[in-house]
Design a protein around this nucleic acid. Structure first.
Lengths: 213, 213
DNA sequence: TAGATTGTTAATCGATTAACAATC
DNA sequence: TAGATTGTTAATCGATTAACAATC
């Protein structure tokens, strides 16, 4: 395991993920060096912001040359946990939940989906890819046995908190909440929200603004 | 259409969407009034922040009573465009794209998915719900004829910018980018990013932080 | 060496919080 | 009326940007 990290502001973390995906797939394979100015230009930031952000990472650039791409990528992967394999389960076998199980990008980025659960007994037993949908009562055992880190909540808003509580009680260390509801977890369990409908509402506001001009 | 809105900071917009979904499904049907303190408590904010945020909206509360739930909800729906119907298409008929077409939450929130496109000719022609996957060459005509507002990008990172360009050229007013790539659009076209893998990386960083203690 | 780029300090800008007068 | 809550101003806090010495 790497050295102890200081707390990094959430806004910086969000940008670091962008730097990482840019280095992973946005620059030519044979690019050895990249400057803060180049990163800033492509991502629409200032070079100052990029340098400040990178200073949070256990990594140093080189005067006159910039950052070594491979090294910066490794340092970012380390900070973000992108070089580890993470063990996840999905709760909710609706269209979204099933898509996540089948999503190739997850496996490619080190997120293994080990099980999918649904409270509806008529859905339990169905196949999703190579997984079989399990009932909720199997959750505590499977999470324990499979040493699951992350619970992904893909259920209707009304059920989200109850599912979160069950996941936490079963021992997950983090929750990804895709439901349109605020979810609370005890200290020690991280929660991140990710909701496509919310993003769409941000977008429609922006569209309304544009068309006023 | 409502009156002209001042620009509202992006962070405020994000919280306004949370207030709205809370009012829509997080409070009992028969709740008539709600205070800034109550909203703040459930969403983990300060009441000051809530009042500041609400002041951006064309709406006033009442001393001693708080905000009238129905009225505040209407005002928020107006600002966020959640009371209009938005016409969208999905590009990319992989697992994620197909799930979005089938996702009930979209229709319920006023987002109509009118078509789905894929560049792979072996996929074009397949059925996804009641839609048939179209080839990319049909896109300009369909977007024009169907008066599509929003293009949803659900393709691999390498194709994202090219898809964005085609959507913009066809006349959409906003892009929701689900691809792991930075996408640029001309002024006048709004872009919002929403990436589950990015959220997962934020989460894994948080988990790593927690376990250091 | 000269020029370019980092890392960091200080300045600016914006967002959040505290405080309180206005008000029903 | 008394008490509670808004709306708003001012203070604080944090994030971004500018500037520049250090450096290879």
């Amino acid at each position: 395991m790497g050295k102890v990290q200081r707390a990094i502001p959430q806004l910086v973390i969000k940008r670091l993920t962008r730097y990482l995906t840019h280095l992973q797939s946005g620059v030519p394979e044979d690019t050895d060096w990249i400057s803060s100015h180049e990163i800033a230009k492509t991502l629409g930031l200032t070079s100052s912001t990029v340098r400040q952000d990178v200073s949070h990472v256990n990594f140093s650039g080189v005067s006159k040359k910039g950052y070594e791409v491979r090294e910066l990528r490794k340092a970012l992967e380390d900070v973000l946990g992108a070089n580890s394999v993470w063990r996840a389960v999905v709760v909710g076998a609706g269209n979204l939940g099933r898509a996540l199980v089948l999503h190739e990008e997850f496996a490619r980025r080190g997120f293994q989906v080990l099980a999918i659960f649904d409270s509806n007994p008529r859905i339990a037993g169905r196949k999703v890819g190579h997984l079989t949908v399990r009932g909720m009562s199997d959750m505590p055992r499977i999470i324990r046995e499979e040493k699951v880190d992350i619970g992904i909540i893909a259920v209707p808003a009304a059920a989200a908190q109850s599912v979160a509580d069950q996941l936490v009680a079963s021992g997950v260390r983090g929750l990804l909440n895709l439901a349109l509801a605020h979810v609370v977890a005890p200290r020690g369990v991280a929660v991140t929200d990710s909701r496509i409908v919310t993003s769409l509402m941000e977008l429609t506001h922006a569209i309304k603004m544009q068309s006023q001009k």
